[in-house]
Structures are given as structure tokens and as C-alpha cells.
Nucleic acid binder design. Structure first.
Length: 1134
RNA sequence: GGGCUUGUAGCUCAGGUGGUUAGAGCGCUACACUGAUAAUGUAGAGGUCCGUGGUUCGAGUCCACGCAGGCCCA
């Protein structure tokens, strides 16, 4: 169609639209432009949490990235410059595992010669490097197709030398501030393999096996003191013991505390020790008494003769509960060391509180040895209880069990003994005199009246997958970041972060900070950022903070003359590579670099790699190779204004970003954060490739297009709630929102083209536009405010839903439907011009408001609206609409709401009486009790009249005297006044007589029975008009006059007739503008009269130049049924 | 075991500060409209608001204890 301004569409393929728009963006570099045009504007900084590219992207990535994209686009529209640097997370265990799987090897093979089926660290790491970027093509493809705008041309990559160097710089800063130190953690350790085990290795099938261990309930003797005073009922000489059960008796010499639960109920029991037969008082959890004492032995008093009568041969031991108390009362009680081989350097042997204590087994009191239990270590450290340690030859603190699993010399009775019997050879264990160490300990404790019960107990226990021997929980060297030193500041600054949802920040993250422990940085792996610390055997150490640092240390070492020839050669090799620029800061190369200390000792790199989370937490700095380059860029881009990741990152990326930012820069690293929930399948199950319920993002985008997919994900559930992903929902969004919007646009385009309308700003002042226009424009301004507010508070769901409601309920279903007539009738009048301008403005604004969520479709819509021939535009280059608050007319909005309500009620009544809308009726009657409502409805009565096809809207007010009023108690007002008397008051009000009500209305108050009522205490409404058909809803009542006069009947017939003719026109493919001639056979007087008396109306509606009633059509007529009439007519184009 | 979180119609979700008739969309049923028409409109059916106790004149809403799902951590 030549000369057409607005493209019209027959049918739409939304995926195709997106593909075309993508091409357009790429050709015109719209993304780059959107950033460039904001040059010089305030920046809005976004940090991309780097995805690991070692696997294919899933649908949840579309979700996560949509959130990121939305706010970056929104802020761009608002005039900020929003740079988005992409990034890749490339280190870590998942990649190592992937490589090992592909090569069919295990960690054991790494570093072994090829002849033994091994692989060198060099080759292994090369393989990791290749693997990790293998899927980047797919990721880039997804990024494009889903419309995520991020700079993929210059991403940061965590394995690059520059990135690592920045990380080293940060570590050096921490080191210099004494925030990086070497300590230990309790980890699973295999003495026979001589190595620690990762949790992954511990989770391998078959590692947990049932074993029968010797277990001991030990008696820890309470020292009398102020704290323990309440236990000593009448005599300070009483023997009071706290009972603690252990499945690892060998750890008892390392006991330094007992842990109880603060809210657990404990009792003190008087009974007799089964091995020594002496009377003892023992403390244990109340509901575990039955686990250790036979009910038959229970006596009712501690003075019971049963205690004296007890004989060592008796099977049943007498016992009785002496007192009962909560665990918190036990806190601080001191006891005598159970096995006093080694003395700690600080006060120990106290009862402390721990959150991990249960009463499911044992005694409800946990024997605590900080060197052999992770929980133990944690609670002891928190309570300031020292571990039991001895000094090794170099003066270093070591545990009382060595790395082979043998007791050290200081444990004199058992020195050199293996703590687990499985560590002995089979021959040794077969010796008839062989006794496991646990048994020896049990015997000793029994003899010393320190064991309350010794028994075999079967339970699952982890074993080393390599040696098949039980593992030990054992302290292993680790490097830590002293996060606890900055805990207060971390907590304080966290409070300045805007978390969405808030509970993640205060709850999950806040609690995590409150219970902070030092960050264990060490990982015993191969593919990762090496810890930049070199150490000599005597503990001299140096931490380097740059490649240059390293070079200097190597050069110095080369000159020292302390290195072996081989070390010299390796160093030389590395220096050479540095000089050529072809170097690698990974293992094994950095391991083959040797420094020399001040005192002339050779220093080697600590073999640890660092936690990959440090890599990602370092991205604000390392992505710019700060401080070696780009210092100015960094300063502008720190901290981030906005980040978003899954809620599972709370203790991952969110924490590491925050920790590094606070510890080194005393600043938050991000100001606003949206933590997103999971994407589940439609049944609420976790998606997994293994189960086959994972949704392929590419297939989804291809089928539904990115816009509907994004819109569905955003509006269906708030981002932090889990999303049950159901593709049916995308289809619904497509039909409901995009379909309606496209229809609305097409409607506009159809008539705009016919009238050769071309939008050129507001030519008709809003004040001069009809009610309906002013109403939708008012709604539009309100929408802009709402959307802006929701985006500003990082709630895209509410923003999207607001747009959706506007498009469906207000714009399409009300404005367009009621305005259709204005578009299709007559010439381009001012009224019509106003309609075009109004609709155009609504659509354009909607395209802007929705563009962050549905970027392709919004741009398509926007560019269609700007007209064919405009080729340099994009909605993403516009400024966010500014609401004109002067156009907001709440009175009008309220009026229209009433119009919608009244119409709905009338429709309902018509339906109930089978009166179709085409049949005009004379009037509706609306009872109104206040003038406001009356005015508001009067305002829109023309709309109501045309919508429900009635001739008049009339009002009945109080003065008419025919209103039947109903009075209801207003509970909200009555509540505070009458409280408990409410039921009675309500009854009195409901029973009020019309006279009393009248009195109340006139006097504004009324004494009713015992109650003094105000007018505001009741709600008055009308639900009935005697003799009328009424419907009411929400306090609004409508009555309909259903009398059909002959005249109305005639009009109804005329309308039906118009309808049939219109159908005919359409069947014959007449154009909208074609004029016709009609001849109708006169075969019924009612029909003829109706047609004749509505001639004018009919001719106008169907564009007829003539309408003649003839007696005979000579058989050339068309026959059509119309209710009880048989139409015979002839219609011709002029 | 702990922290956080969710539970409202067949499905997906709304329901400030407690107020007596708990809403929407989809789906379903029926009807209307037929110049937005592979559209559209209207109406109807459909609910022990997860359970049990408690606070209150009044609880989907507040409190306690549970149950079930989810995430993270032990």
C-alpha cells in the first residue's frame, strides 16, 4: 500500500520479530549507542557475576540475566550511563571434575608420570583451560537471543595473568594488614593416604560404612564453685559428674570442654557406678535418662534404703532424680581434666553452650576436643577454650595424634599407638593379646571411676576411598582471611545495602555475618589462582603483590648463591618467560620458582590454591587489572549500584564481594542487590538434566520468542520467589499481553492509514479532548508513576503487572472498545484527531515502559509507531517518560470506575432477563445517597448509556422517599469504642427501625439502648428499590427498567437489521468505505414500521445511499433470518 | 539439627497498619458480539485461606507449636 505510514500485520511470529529486531540492533549498534549517548551523564554501575562457562546454559540463566538486563536498561532510559562488562568464572572444582571425567582419571593421577597412566600438572591445567571456554559460543548465542545487553567483546576472565595479578595485589594488601594468616581447620583426613579429603570425596558412594566402635560415657568430675553451687545440694564433698558420650574414646585426652544446649532440660541423678560400685551423682539430659538407667531401678528419694542395700552383684542399679535445670545454668561450670597428660596454655575444662547439641543420642552433653571435631573447634574458639596441643621439634603446636594416626610421646600410656585399630596390620590385630587403643582407654577409665558406661555401638563412619581405612577429623594447615577482625564493620556496612528481598539481607546474610568465622582460603587443587606466599622451612615467609614483586624476588634469589643448580635453572626459565611476555601464573610454573629469605634460606611457594570465591569477589578490581591499570575507570565504577544473582550466592559471591570491599576499601561493594529464587519445573521440582525435566532455553526462545519468555518469568512470580516454570504460561502471556497489544496497534494502524493520520505531537490540547481521552491519559500518567516507583524499588514484577493491567483492562477493553466508533466514522475531525493522538501516545508510552522487560517487542512496537521510513530510532535510545501529574484526574478515574461497575451490573441484569444488548431500554436507575457519587456517575452517563444501550441514566435520592435503606455496622469504627460489647451493638444496629435511622442521619448521633452511636459508626446502603429489578455490588446498586415500548422494540429491530446488513457487506468483501443501495421486501408490518421509522439511523450505520421498501424483489433477494422475521433484501454496491 | 523462605479456587498468583460477602488471570460452562474477527465482551460454577492451639468483640492477616516443599549451612 503506497503512502501508508503505519505497517499493518496479518499475523505475527514473535520469535521472528525478535530475530529481526536483533539484526536491526546489530546493524545499527543500538547497544553501543545506548551507552554512548549517555556520555557525560552520571554512571550507574553494574557488576556481572561471572557465569562458569564449563556447562551449557539453562533456562534459569535466562531468568537471572533478565533481571540484570531489566535494571540496566531502565537506568539507561533514565539517563544514566550503564556500562556492562561481561565476565567468565574459569577456576574451581567443577571444571577439574569435568576434566577428570573426560580424561577418565582421578586426582591421584595428576602429577604422576605418563607411564603410570598419570598426567602432568601442566597438561592437566592446559586441559582445564580448554574445557572452561568450550561452551562460550553457546553462552554468547543465548546472550544475544534473549536480548541480554552485556559487553562480550571485552570480558574479564579469571584465569588471565592480569586478573591473577590483581588478585595477588589484594591478597598482599590483606597480608600487610595482618588479615591473612596460617592456621588450621578440622578436615576429613586419611592418615594412611597422608592426605586431606574434600567433601566431594567424602560424598562418594561407599565411603560411609557401618562400624562397631567401643564407646564410652565418661564421668567428668565437677569442681565446686559459685557456678556449680546449685548442684551441691547439702555437701560440698559430694561426687558430682557430668556425663558425656563419645564414639571416639581416643579423643578423650584432647578433651578441653563440654558442650550443652542452652534450652535443653538436664537432671542430676543419684545412682551407683556399675564398675566401681560407688555412689555418684551424674548430670545428663532429662529425656535421655531412660537410655542409660533401667526404669526398674528407679526409687523415689535420694535417701532411699535401696542405695545402702545395693550389692555389686545386683543386676538393677538404684537411681533417683535429685534436681532439674536448663542447660544454660550449667554454662561456666568447671570440671577436672579427665586424662591429664597435656596441660593447655590457657584455662580450659569448662561447660560451654553450643547450638549443635541434641538429645537424640548420648547424654545431651558433648565431649569437646577442638583438634578433632569441626563443631568442637568452632564452639571452643567462640568460647575462648584452647585446644590440647603439644610442641613438635620446630616448636610448632601440633595435635596429640600425629599425621600417621599415632599418639605422640606426651600421651605416655599410649605413645606411638594407633588411635584406630584398623590402622594396625592384620597380623598385629590377630594377636590374642592385641587390644585396640579405645579399649585400653576404656579399661583405664573404668578403674579410675571415670567411666559410667562402656559399650560397643554400631554406626556409619566415613572411610577413605583410597585406603578403605576410617578417616580422622584432623586439624590441617590452611590459610585464612581474618574476617572476624572486621566483623563489626561488615555488619554495619551491610545495613546500608538495599537488599531485595529485605529478608535475605537481614536474615540469611545478616545472620551469616553475625556468626562469621575466618574465611578459609586454602584449596588443595591444581587449577586455580595460586596463593602468592613463599615460605622457608623455618617459617620465614613473603607474600608478593605483583608480577614485578615476583621478578625482584627471583632476581635476588638468583644472585644469593643459595639455590641449587636445578632451582637456578628453573628460576632462569621463568625470568625468561616473563621477559618474553609468554608466561603463566598457574601451577606448575609458579611452584618452580624459588626465593631466598633474609637469613639465606630457600623459600618455596605454599602449595595451596585459593578459594575460587575470592576470584569472583575480586572482580570489581581485577576486571580492570586494578591497580596496575585503569585506576580512573575503577574509581568511577566502585562500588556497584546494582548486582543480582541467585539467593544461593548469599554466602558465595555476595559475601566475597562484601568481605573484600569492606576489608580493603572500607566500603560496600554494591548498594542494591536483587537475590533471585530458583527456577523449578512446572510441578515444583528442581530441574536437572539427569531427571530430564530441564527446560532447554534455546527451544523455548525459538518457540515463544524472548519477549514473552522474559515477561512470563518476570510477572509470574516475584524474582526472589521460586518460579514454577510452565511453558503454557508463556503462551498465555503471548495471547494475553502481546496479542492484545498487537491488536490494539493494528487497530490504530488500520484507521490511521485510512485517514492518513501521522503523529506530530499533541495538536489537540488535552483539555479539549473528550472525557474518555482525558481519562485514559490520566490512567497513563498514573501508570508511568507506578512503573517508575516499582522499578526504582527493584520490583520488576509489580512494574510488569501494572503495564499488563493497563493494556488489557484500561486501554484495550475500555478505551479502544468504547472509542471504536470515533475511529471509523466520518472525516478526520478534531475529535478523531484527538483519538488518534491519545491512542498513539498510550501505545508509545507503553512501549517505553515495557522495554526493559520485553526489549525486542517494545522496540518493534515503538518503531512501528514512529512510522515507516524511520530507520534510526529505537525505544532504547529514548528517555523514560515523565508523568505529567497535571493530567491526573482522580475524580475522573473514579467516575470511570463507577461507569464500569454500573455497566457490569446492567449487563448482569440484562443477561438475567434475556434482554440482549442490541435491544435498547429506556433507563437505568441508580440510587445515590451522596451527591459526590451522583456527580461522578452523571459525568459518565453518556458512556454508560452507549455501553449498555439505554436511553437514560436516572438517579433516585433520599428525597424521593422510595429508597429502602439498609444499615450495617461499621466494625472498624465501632471496634475501638465498644470492644467486647460488639456483638450486642451489631445486633442493635441491624435491628434499627427506619425512623431511628432517619434520626441518626439528621442528628449525626443517636442514643440507642445503652449505646451512643455516631453516624460514622454505621454504613448506610440501598440494596433494593421496591418494584424494580436490581443488582448490587460493593455498595453500588443499579435498577433497570425492562419495559420494552413499541418504539424501543422498533429501534431494536433496526439495530438487528443493521447488524445483518453489516454481515452481508462483510461476506461480500465490501470495503469499509463502499456505499450501498438497499431494497427490502415489505413482508411484515412490524418490521416495515421499525425500518421506516429508523431509516436515517440505518442508512448512516451501513453507509447506504438509499433504503427502499418494495413489495416484490423478483426473486433476486437474499433471505436472512432475524428473530421472528424473515428478511428478503437486495444489497448492491453503488 | 540450625538459619532463611513458601503454603489462598483445578493451575499461576493478588490480598498496607486485624473489621464480618477473600479477589484476578488461565482453564471450565453458558451466553452475547460479528467493521479489532485466527479477535472481543459478559455472566456462572469453583475456597475447612496447610494443620492445631492461643490473643481478640472480631484472625487469611498477630503469637506459639506442628506438617509439607525449597535454598543455604552443619
Amino acid at each position: 500500500m503506497p503512502g501508508v505510514k503505519y505497517q499493518q500485520y496479518e499475523s505475527l511470529d514473535y520469535a521472528q520479530i525478535a530475530a529481526e529486531v536483533l539484526t536491526y540492533w546489530n546493524q545499527n549498534q543500538v547497544f553501543e549507542q545506548s551507552v554512548a549517548i549517555r556520555d557525560g551523564q552520571p554512571t550507574f554501575t553494574f557488576y556481572e557475576g561471572p557465569p562458569s562457562a564449563n556447562g551449557t546454559p539453562g533456562i534459569h540463566h535466562v531468568m537471572a540475566r533478565t533481571i540484570k538486563d531489566i535494571f540496566c536498561r531502565y537506568k539507561t532510559l533514565q539517563g544514566f550511563q550503564v556500562e556492562r562488562k561481561g565476565g567468565w568464572d574459569t577456576h574451581g572444582l567443577p571444571i577439574e571434575l569435568q576434566v577428570e571425567k573426560e580424561l577418565g582419571i582421578t586426582k591421584d593421577h595428576i602429577g604422576k608420570p605418563e607411564s603410570e597412566g598419570g598426567i602432568s600438572v601442566e597438561d592437566y591445567n592446559r586441559k582445564c583451560r580448554e574445557t572452561v571456554m568450550r561452551f562460550t559460543d553457546q553462552w554468547n548465542d543465548l546472550t544475544q537471543k534473549m536480548g541480554y545487553w552485556v559487553d562480550l567483546d571485552n570480558p574479564y576472565v579469571t584465569y588471565k595473568n592480569e586478573y591473577i595479578e590483581s588478585v595477588w595485589y589484594l591478597l598482599k594488601q590483606l597480608y600487610d594488614k595482618n588479615l591473612l594468616y596460617k592456621g588450621y581447620t578440622i578436615q576429613p583426613y586419611s592418615p594412611k593416604a597422608g592426605t586431606g579429603l574434600s567433601s566431594h570425596e567424602l560424598n562418594m558412594p561407599g565411603t560411609y560404612k557401618d562400624v562397631r566402635d567401643t564407646t564410652i560415657v565418661a564421668q567428668f568430675k565437677v569442681k565446686p564453685s559459685g557456678k556449680s553451687g546449685f548442684l551441691f545440694f547439702d555437701s560440698a564433698d559430694a561426687d558430682i559428674y557430668i556425663l558425656a558420650w563419645t564414639t571416639t574414646p581416643w579423643t578423650l585426652p584432647a578433651n578441653s570442654a563440654l558442650t550443652v544446649g542452652a534450652n535443653i532440660d538436664y537432671v542430676m541423678v543419684k545412682t551407683i557406678n556399675p564398675y566401681t560400685h560407688v555412689v555418684v551423682h551424674v548430670v545428663m539430659a532429662k529425656n535421655l535418662v531412660g537410655r542409660w538407667l533401667n526404669e526398674k531401678g528407679k526409687v523415689d528419694s535420694r535417701n532411699s534404703p535401696a542405695f545402702d542395700a545395693y550389692l555389686p552383684t545386683d543386676k538393677i542399679t538404684p537411681w533417683t532424680i535429685v534436681s532439674e535445670f536448663k542447660g544454660q545454668h550449667l554454662e561456666g561450670i568447671e570440671y577436672e581434666q579427665l586424662m591429664p597428660y597435656v596441660q593447655p596454655d590457657k584455662p580450659a575444662f569448662r561447660v560451654i553452650l553450643g547450638d549443635f547439641v541434641t538429645t537424640e543420642d548420648g547424654t545431651g552433653i558433648v565431649h569437646t576436643s577442638p583438634t578433632f571435631g569441626a563443631d568442637d573447634f568452632r564452639v571452643a574458639q567462640a568460647a575462648g577454650i584452647p585446644p590440647i596441643m603439644v610442641k613438635d621439634e620446630t616448636g610448632k603446636d601440633v595435635p596429640i595424634v600425629d599425621k600417621h594416626g599415632q599418639f605422640v610421646d606426651e600421651i605416655t600410656d599410649y605413645a606411638g599407638r594407633y588411635v584406630k585399630e584398623e590402622y594396625y596390620s592384620d597380623e598385629e590385630r590377630e594377636d590374642p593379646d592385641f587390644k585396640p587403643t579405645d579399649v585400653l582407654i576404656a579399661i583405664k577409665l573404668k578403674e579410675e571411676n571415670k567411666a559410667f558406661r562402656v559399650e560397643k555401638y554400631e554406626h556409619p563412619y566415613p572411610h577413605c576411598w583410597r585406603t578403605d581405612k576410617p578417616i580422622l577429623y584432623y586439624p590441617l594447615d590452611s590459610w585464612f582471611i581474618r574476617t572476624t577482625a572486621k566483623k563489626d564493620r561488615l555488619v554495619e556496612l551491610n545495613k546500608t545495602i538495599n537488599w531485595q528481598p529485605e529478608s535475605t539481607g537481614t536474615g540469611r546474610f545478616g545472620n551469616w555475618l553475625e556468626n562469621l568465622v575466618d574465611w578459609n582460603l586454602s584449596r588443595s587443587r591444581f587449577w586455580g589462582t595460586p596463593l602468592p606466599i613463599w615460605r622457608s622451612e623455618t617459617g620465614e615467609e613473603v607474600c608478593i603483590g605483583s608480577v614485578d614483586d615476583m621478578k625482584k624476588h627471583v632476581a635476588k634469589a638468583q644472585e644469593s648463591g643459595k639455590l641449587t643448580a636445578e632451582q637456578q635453572a628453573k628460576n632462569g626459565e621463568f625470568l625468561q618467560k616473563l621477559a618474553s611476555g609468554d608466561y603463566d601464573l598457574h601451577r606448575p610454573y609458579v611452584d618452580e620458582v624459588y626465593f631466598v629469605s633474609e637469613s639465606g634460606q630457600v623459600m618455596q611457594r605454599e602449595s595451596d590454591l585459593i578459594d575460587v570465591w575470592f576470584d569472583s569477589g575480586a572482580m570489581p578490581y581485577a576486571q580492570w587489572h586494578y591497580p596496575f591499570e585503569n585506576q580512573d575507570i575503577f574509581k568511577k565504577a566502585f562500588p556497584a549500584d546494582f548486582i543480582s544473582e541467585g539467593v544461593d550466592q548469599t554466602r558465595g559471591w555476595f559475601f566475597t564481594l562484601h568481605a573484600i570491599g569492606v576489608m580493603l576499601f572500607d566500603s560496600v561493594a554494591f548498594k542494591n542487590v536483587v537475590s533471585t529464587g530458583l527456577v523449578l519445573d512446572k510441578n515444583g521440582n528442581k530441574m536437572s538434566k539427569r531427571l530430564g525435566n530441564a527446560v532447554d532455553p534455546f527451544a523455548t526462545l525459538a518457540k515463544y520468542g524472548p519477549d514473552a519468555t522474559r515477561w512470563y518469568m518476570i510477572t509470574n512470580a516475584e524474582p526472589w520467589d521460586n518460579l514454577k516454570f510452565n511453558t503454557d504460561g508463556i503462551g498465555e502471556v503471548q495471547r494475553k499481553l502481546f496479542g492484545t497489544l498487537s491488536n490494539t496497534y493494528n487497530f490504530f494502524a488500520l484507521y490511521a492509514n485510512l485517514d492518513k493520520f501521522s503523529f506530530a505531537g499533541r495538536t489537540v490540547p488535552v483539555a479539549q479532548r473528550p472525557e474518555l481521552d482525558r481519562w485514559i491519559l490520566s490512567k497513563l500518567q498514573s501508570l508511568v508513576l507506578e512503573v517508575e516507583e516499582q522499578f526504582d524499588s527493584y520490583n520488576p514484577t509489580k512494574a510488569g503487572r501494572a503495564v499488563q493491567d493497563f493494556v488489557n483492562d484500561q486501554l484495550s477493553n475500555w478505551y479502544v472498545r468504547l472509542s471504536r466508533r470515533r475511529f471509523w466514522q466520518g472525516e478526520l475531525t478534531t475529535d478523531k484527531q484527538a483519538a488518534y493522538e491519545t491512542l498513539h501516545e498510550c501505545l508509545t508510552t507503553v512501549s517505553q515502559l515495557m522495554s526493559p522487560i520485553a526489549p525486542f517487542y517494545a522496540d518493534w512496537l515503538y518503531r512501528n509507531l514512529t512510522g515507516i521510513g524511520t530507520n534510526d530510532a529505537s525505544v532504547h535510545l529514548t528517555n523514560f517518560p515523565v508523568a505529567n501529574q497535571n493530567l491526573i484526574d482522580t475524580e475522573l478515574e473514579r467516575s470511570m470506575e463507577l461507569a464500569q461497575q454500573v455497566s457490569s451490573l446492567v449487563h448482569s441484569l440484562r443477561k438475567g432477563h434475556k434482554l440482549k444488548v442490541r435491544q435498547p431500554l429506556s433507563r437505568v436507575l441508580v440510587p445515590v445517597l451522596n451527591t459526590d457519587t451522583r456527580r461522578q456517575i452523571e459525568h459518565v452517563s453518556p458512556i454508560i448509556m452507549s455501553e449498555v444501550n439505554v436511553k437514560a441514566v436516572e438517579f433516585v435520592d433520599d428525597a424521593s422517599g422510595i429508597l429502602k435503606k439498609k444499615v450495617k455496622p461499621n466494625f472498624k469504627a465501632l471496634g475501638p469504642k465498644f470492644g467486647k460489647q460488639m456483638k450486642d451493638v451489631a445486633a442493635v444496629i441491624t435491628a434499627m427501625t427506619p425512623e431511628q435511622l432517619k434520626q441518626l442521619e439528621e442528628a449525626n448521633s443517636l442514643q440507642l439502648g445503652a449505646y451512643d452511636l455516631q453516624l460514622a459508626d454505621v454504613e448506610i446502603l440501598t440494596e433494593d428499590i421496591p418494584g424494580w429489578l436490581v443488582a448490587s455490588e460493593g455498595g453500588l446498586t443499579v435498577a433497570l427498567d425492562v419495559n420494552v415500548t413499541d418504539e424501543l422494540r422498533g429501534e431494536g429491530i433496526a439495530r438487528d437489521f443493521v447488524n445483518r446488513v453489516q454481515n452481508l457487506r462483510k461476506d461480500r468483501d465490501f470495503s469499509v468505505t463502499d456505499k450501498i443501495r438497499i431494497e427490502l421486501e415489505r413482508n411484515d408490518e412490524t418490521l416495515a414500521t421499525a425500518i421506516e421509522s429508523n431509516q436515517e439511523y440505518i442508512r448512516q450505520e451501513v453507509q447506504a445511499v438509499s433504503l427502499d421498501l418494495v413489495s416484490d424483489l423478483n426473486g433476486s433477494a437474499v433471505e436472512i433470518e432475524m428473530d421472528e422475521f424473515q428478511l428478503r433484501l437486495k444489497v448492491d454496491r453503488v
